[in-house]
Design a binder for these strands. Structure first.
Lengths: 224, 224
DNA sequence: GAATAGTATGTTGCATTCATAATTCAAGTC
DNA sequence: GACTTGAATTATGAATGCAACATACTATTC
């Protein structure tokens, strides 16, 4: 057995880190609804940990924008308004535009092919009207483009903003025409990507995000 | 005395919040140098607090990218490489471009005048070769534009990224020709702002950031 | 003398405890 | 009966204590 080539290091997980991830999931899944108070004691019992790591996790989630901490009054799941979305989406759109620019400069054929495969599977899901699978693939495509842009700072920033509004994205129960439009946009995106068209791709990605925003906005307004 | 109109609420400061701010300053001022280990005990004594709030502060700073936490091995001031800067600057540039776009759509004459004043004072500082004052005003102008864009998400994202590389910005001990060029760019920016030229301003802001990056890069390379 | 095993020391992660601020609820007042 | 006031309860903020891990050092072996 080779001792010089070290195998994958054992991943160490601290409790607070684990808690951060679990709470993020709970919030995004809607299990913890926006605005609800988070009493520390309750969560401590739920996860069978003491308050110390839980409080550390809440501090982290606060920076990430998932919870809102009020001194001496504890934590609450962060709420977001339509206005918040109107602020966040254009930023995400700008970041995706940048990713489009960078991608054209350096994406490999192999990466394009991989995205192409995701794309075609997504088309199939659209044809079969399988929304959850479609969503998953849609997201995978956008992440793949971000990855191919090769800019970790961009990725991290995008991920952080996208994470915060993930809940809203799920509510967008898009209508058939909007869905069809989104798919059409993806077709164009893939064409521009294959052509490495650095004038067109950024604009397409940007517009695509704003289209998404439109459907989210509609769903959001409907909920009120 | 009016009781209905509440006066400014008393600002509550928790220890961890205070610590986050102080540590950020220490790191940005270079008092805690990149790569140095941060033993909890030492800082606890320095600030006369217990480890609990300090550890919470370190978690926050870790998310913000100022320190790097390694499980069971404690915290160290985050290092950044030239590559990191090459990733972060384009993102900041994109965000500033977006701010330029938004600003053109909604900035008031009053806000433009205020920025104009900052600009003229900055010119004076440039004429007198007063670098620290110039830097301060320069930053104030960019912040004022961000403010006028009226997008808190954009502001927060920009602030976070800018904060992380603040140390690098300070090292940019720009040469006279570069300095002159930066001032010239600011002149153009102000013109486009006054004209609310939404085609030109975003591009100018973006290029300006990238110019800044060039001088930072030069200073960075020199240090090695 | 170099390398390894074993030991001691220091640090970190988490649980617990103590102190303080917020909330609840009951008694009292108009 | 609505409003205020003050005590009791509860939750949060911070300090301390303990166990696990990492590092530094010493001793032992070859």
């Amino acid at each position: 057995m080779s001792l010089s080539a070290r195998s994958d290091p054992i991943e160490r997980r601290s409790l607070h880190h684990e808690l951060v991830e679990r709470l993020r999931v709970l919030i995004n899944a809607g299990e913890l609804k926006p605005g609800t108070k988070i009493p520390e004691k309750a969560l401590c019992e739920k996860f069978a940990v003491s308050r110390t790591p839980l409080r550390e996790a809440l501090k982290v989630l606060s920076v990430e924008g998932f919870v809102k901490l009020t001194p001496n009054r504890g934590a609450a799941v962060a709420e977001f308004t339509l206005q918040d979305l109107e602020h966040v989406f254009p930023v995400i759109a700008s970041l995706e535009a940048l990713s489009g620019e960078l991608v054209c400069a350096q994406i490999s054929n192999r990466e394009i092919d991989a995205i192409g495969e995701l794309h075609h599977e997504m088309l199939e899901r659209h044809r079969l009207r399988q929304r959850p699978e479609y969503f998953r693939l849609n997201q995978a495509i956008h992440e793949a483009i971000l990855d191919a842009a090769g800019n970790p700072a961009l990725q991290a920033t995008h991920r952080s903003l996208a994470g915060r509004i993930a809940r809203a994205r799920y509510m967008a129960n898009l209508s058939q025409p909007r869905w069809d439009q989104a798919v059409a946009e993806h077709e164009e995106i893939l064409l521009a990507l294959r052509a490495r068209d650095r004038n067109r791709l950024p604009k397409l990605l940007r517009d695509h995000v704003m289209t998404k925003f439109a459907s989210v906005k509609a769903a959001f307004a409907e909920q009120e």
